[in-house]
Design a binder for these strands. Structure first.
Length: 154
DNA sequence: GCCAACGTTGGC
DNA sequence: GCCAACGTTGGC
């Protein structure tokens, strides 16, 4: 018995890694998350979970595509790599601090669903981590109803 | 580039 | 354990 499919939203800066990049590489290890809450969400992920691929810090921030969780969480190798920007001297190999999943390309949306538009539907969406005041989480949960509604905006 | 929000660090 | 200082995120 597998757990019921769940849904998530993952942020990325398109200048660094966009939905088009994911389409090219097909599957990408989601390295570099250094926030405990975001990490905890990744540890909860199951293979096949749905991911809204969100572009942040760009001209039109918003949902740009759909992806799928490709495997359960495993230690992020960049935390042990001294040459990596994500190196964490305080993380021990015997007890890695940071974990991550791989994310597989599903599809690019016909248009980006802008954050501005998402905010305008606050009533339909209900409580949503993406639009909560001051939110900066890069990996956050989405309910089945929110998933369905957001994709209906496409 | 600005700045609000928020997480982390480190002195005490 | 408190909290000021600092760094980062991310919209605008």
């Amino acid at each position: 018995m597998s757990a019921r499919k769940r849904y998530w939203l993952m942020k990325t800066e398109p200048d660094t890694f966009s939905i088009d990049d994911l389409a090219k590489v097909k599957t990408e290890p989601w390295t570099g998350v250094r926030n405990y809450q975001a990490r905890n969400h990744m540890k909860e992920m199951q293979v096949g979970d749905g991911v809204l691929f969100y572009h942040s810090s760009c001209e039109v921030p918003g949902i740009a595509g759909v992806a799928t969780v490709a495997n359960t969480a495993y230690p992020d190798p960049t935390q042990f790599d001294k040459n990596s920007d994500y190196f964490d001297a305080k993380s021990a190999r015997e007890q890695p601090r940071w974990e991550m999943v791989d994310v597989s390309f599903d599809r690019k949306l016909k248009r980006v669903i802008p954050l501005e538009e998402i905010k305008a539907h606050a009533d339909e969406l209900g409580p949503f981590a993406l639009t909560q005041r001051g939110n900066r989480l890069s990996v956050l949960p989405v309910s089945a109803a929110q998933w369905k509604f957001l994709l209906s905006l496409e």
